[in-house]
């Protein structure tokens, strides 16, 4: 699983994409995903809306909106890949266009109950 972090328009030295750059980035990102879909590598992908509630305490008694929603740590979306190894997943993650704009990709293996 790939976790996309941070919005594509925030980073220390980035004042934000212009509307034209956003449009170019949209086409590029969609093409990236579409290609993986067609190759059967990507099995699911969803963006996550920025609003969030963080529950803690017994019965979720404490609810917060979380720290700065613009933090680079906030998960912006996820991709589930059909690959066998961490290396394959990493090399795919490396090609994600959002990395160019200050985003981060986290690669995680979905833990399984049984092993071959």
């Amino acid at each position: 699983m790939l976790l996309a972090k941070g919005s594509p328009c925030q980073s220390a030295n980035h004042s934000g994409l212009s509307p034209e750059q956003m449009q170019a980035h949209l086409a590029e990102s969609y093409a990236w995903m579409d290609d993986l879909f067609k190759k059967g590598i990507l099995s699911a992908a969803q963006p996550l809306a920025p609003e969030r509630k963080i529950l803690s305490g017994e019965n979720g008694g404490t609810i917060s909106d979380g720290a700065n929603a613009e933090s680079k740590e906030v998960i912006a979306g996820f991709f589930i890949l059909n690959v066998q190894t961490m290396d394959e997943a990493v090399s795919i993650a490396r090609t994600n266009p959002m990395l160019k704009h200050g985003g981060q990709m986290e690669v995680r293996r979905i833990a399984e109950l049984t092993h071959d």
């Binding site: 919005s7 594509p8 328009c9 934000g16 994409l17 509307p19 956003m22 980035h25 949209l26 990102s29 969609y30 995903m33 992908a45 969803q46 963006p47 809306a49 920025p50 912006a76 979306g77």
Partner: peptide, 17 residues
């Protein structure tokens, strides 16, 4: 509006326009 465009970018790049 700037934020709305950003959200469009974020959402549409996963799901299409």
């Amino acid at each position: 509006v700037q934020e709305a465009l950003l959200r469009a970018l974020q959402t549409w790049s996963y799901q299409g326009v």
